[in-house]
Computed example of a mutant assay.
Amino acid sequence: MRFKLILSSVKPGITDTIVDAAKAAGATGATIIPARGTGIREAKTFFGLSLEAQTDIIMFLVEEHCVDGILGAIKESGKFHEPGTGIAFVLPVEHVVGLESQMEKFKTEVRESYF
């Protein structure tokens, strides 16, 4: 099986919406990392201290054939067509370990859904 990593940077208020949409489109789970970020505009300051926007990084490790559907669900649910709502991109994954137990369960579920 070939895997891809979908990374999405979003405002914390829409993280759950995006994860739910991605799961409905085929993602089996997500890892969420709180982060800070800056965009094209200057960071705001308050008494000389920089105020950086809070963001969540959502990571989805998915099978290659699921990428388009999941990425589309992330885009729609996150309203990425609106400025400043978030971004998502896909990276190739060379090797994966630790999914052996999940792979057997997945193969069983796929067989059962087709027969």
Rank of each mutant, 00 (worst) to 15 (best):
T38V: 02
F89S: 07
I14K: 01
F3I: 06
S9V: 15
E82M: 13
I32K: 14
P12F: 12
E42C: 04
E112Q: 13
T85G: 01
F89K: 09
I74N: 01
K23N: 04
L5Q: 13
L99R: 03
A73P: 11
V10W: 01
G29E: 04
A73Q: 09
G86M: 00
E109W: 05
L71H: 02
S9L: 14
D20M: 07
K79H: 05
A53E: 15
F3W: 11
I87V: 13
M1Q: 07
F115D: 03
K79M: 06
T28Q: 02
F106A: 08
T15S: 14
V10S: 01
A30L: 13
D56A: 07
S50L: 03
L91E: 05
T28A: 09
T17Q: 11
I33T: 14
V93W: 07
H81I: 07
T55Y: 00
V62C: 03
D68E: 15
S101T: 03
E64N: 13
I18Q: 00
G48W: 05
A35V: 15
K4N: 08
F80L: 01
K23Y: 07
I40R: 12
T108A: 02
M59Q: 14
A25P: 12
G13A: 12
L51S: 08
V90T: 14
F46C: 08
I70F: 04
A43V: 14
S50C: 02
F89R: 08
S50T: 12
H65I: 04
V110P: 03
R36E: 12
I58D: 00
V90N: 04
G13L: 08
Q54F: 06
